[in-house]
Design a protein around this nucleic acid. Sequence first.
DNA 1: AATGAATGAGTATTCATTCAT
DNA 2: TATGAATGAATACTCATTCAT
Lengths: 189, 189, 189, 189
Amino acid sequence: MDDKKRAITLSAMHVFQKNGMEKTTVSEIVKGAGIAQGTFYLYFPSKLSVMPAIASVLVENTIEQFESNNTAQAPLISQLQVLIDTIFSMTQEHRDLYAMLFAGLGSSQQMDQWEAIYQPYYQVVSQIIKRAQHNQEMNASLQAHQTAVMLIGFMESAADQLFLFDYANESAVSAKKQTLLELILNGIT
Amino acid sequence: MDDKKRAITLSAMHVFQKNGMEKTTVSEIVKGAGIAQGTFYLYFPSKLSVMPAIASVLVENTIEQFESNNTAQAPLISQLQVLIDTIFSMTQEHRDLYAMLFAGLGSSQQMDQWEAIYQPYYQVVSQIIKRAQHNQEMNASLQAHQTAVMLIGFMESAADQLFLFDYANESAVSAKKQTLLELILNGIT
Amino acid sequence: MDDKKRAITLSAMHVFQKNGMEKTTVSEIVKGAGIAQGTFYLYFPSKLSVMPAIASVLVENTIEQFESNNTAQAPLISQLQVLIDTIFSMTQEHRDLYAMLFAGLGSSQQMDQWEAIYQPYYQVVSQIIKRAQHNQEMNASLQAHQTAVMLIGFMESAADQLFLFDYANESAVSAKKQTLLELILNGIT
Amino acid sequence: MDDKKRAITLSAMHVFQKNGMEKTTVSEIVKGAGIAQGTFYLYFPSKLSVMPAIASVLVENTIEQFESNNTAQAPLISQLQVLIDTIFSMTQEHRDLYAMLFAGLGSSQQMDQWEAIYQPYYQVVSQIIKRAQHNQEMNASLQAHQTAVMLIGFMESAADQLFLFDYANESAVSAKKQTLLELILNGIT
DNA sequence: AATGAATGAGTATTCATTCAT
DNA sequence: TATGAATGAATACTCATTCAT
């Protein structure tokens, strides 16, 4: 990504997170990016159009954080723990941004774009599932990509709930993560 | 709820869903509700303050739809199927609204209010879980309320994914619902 | 015309004349009209849409000034002199406004509207021509309305030229008026 | 005129005519001229300063078109017909541009410049008048230059009216031209 | 001479909210 | 309660112009 485009995106992430969608002004974004007002529009056609770039950065960061903590040869359960840790950590840090992206999805009418952005993320988890199935750590009849998408959704929804409503202390977090992991591994029966 | 307050809320739901958060104007809401501009402010202190009322209506509708299709004495699996059907149907119809509510949660700083609104929903699912545990259809060690919250999150995230990206046809929907149900019942191992 | 609409129109005339099309701001117009910024848009949908209202006022003023100086029973030549005086005086006072209206005609694509505004003006001159033809002061074969339109055009173009390029002193004005009148009465042969 | 200066002027004519004064951007002009943004300012100090160059081109074109259709030795009436044809044709093609030039005259405060541009035009018509006076086809007491200016004004105002309001079909055009010619030759009495 | 990326001043328009009736 | 005319603060976006290359 062009240096200035990246500077704008990072500044926008910061300002959107601080002020929310409606109170974020282009003027504050460019101030943070150290460029002039008009320069913004050389890189993005509108305020909202920064959103996909932000999503890309979040996906990048998530994958980086996950991979830097994960061991590809580790047992499934360990890798899922790292994934849960990563998602809880990203959610805690960026919950508001995710909500804004999510709310923007509908209006943007560019589903294709969004899918393309999230594919790398789904790929990473999908690989883990395939490997676990090969090692007979996991039910082999589950379709890998579909399961990856669902698992990520499960983890994100649990993290959201936690940081939105229940968040109390570190031990509450650990408990929730543990319950989540068990639920995913064993189901409810 | 006062007749006019309800009229405003319903009109707002419609307009928010049609135009999104930023392009929704009080002027269009009152037009849909058949009242004057100023009257809006007799019932709500601001544009954003309609959001909790919308959330209440959505929760009401969800519970009604679920209970009208559910049989309380039916086996757990049937009841979960009805719950999944309800959530998928509500998500399909109101996805954008949920996203807006969700994005609004952070800014509103009135977590307590939101929790109160969702409690009845969690209660209903929580009861089902308790009954299933009593009937030994379900792992008795799971904490009912916590599991209810997680399950609802799982189902909503699966529905979101479906209607956001994958939605193709009726059979895709059925397949996703089936996978979801199995994952919830049996986990991934 | 509504009191406020008139106030806006008169203020706009003044500001447009002072600053020209491009340097006129709505903010200065409303300041002159003694109303708030937003109120402007209750009466006119855009800055440019004041133009037809200005044209109406100019036509009104021209007719008033002409009729207050004219004697309907006077000989043709006297009435034409009064018309020339009126047009030269209005042109001198409002030349820039006329130019702006004129330049705006093309873009507005609402020819019908403009024709309606100018009709009363053409009517007045048309009546004089018909009366003169009836009194055998004028060539009876000339079509009255068409001739009225042409005569007004002649007079305006002469006045424009004068105040644009030649304007020197009172006697230059008198001379031009005299030449114009003779040309109109007798042609060039 | 330098090749590039001419290219800019021609492109500007086109864009001004298409978009009007306010919606014309330097960016679109340079695009049409096939040059870079900055290059514009090597040839013109500002956007508005292209106007006189446009006026020059229009005057050139008018004179060329007139002279290529006119016979200098022909009777006055024929030459006036050619002049009327030329003015009607140029007006039909470039009415909006004339209006913009005209509206720009007031603001530009460079009357001298404008007069210089139009002089050649007035000269041509002035010569015809002098010759006609010499041939006793025309009232010898009329001051040639002054009459030339007035006649051109008459013809332009008639053409404007026609193409602005009345324009219907070829026969309406012929009729208007005929009436105009008679009025100019014989006056209204 | 030519380029085109960068600038940043400038403004029309919108719309949540108020308040006199 | 209800109205809707009036308010005026707030901001995305444009575009003429500059200047380093």
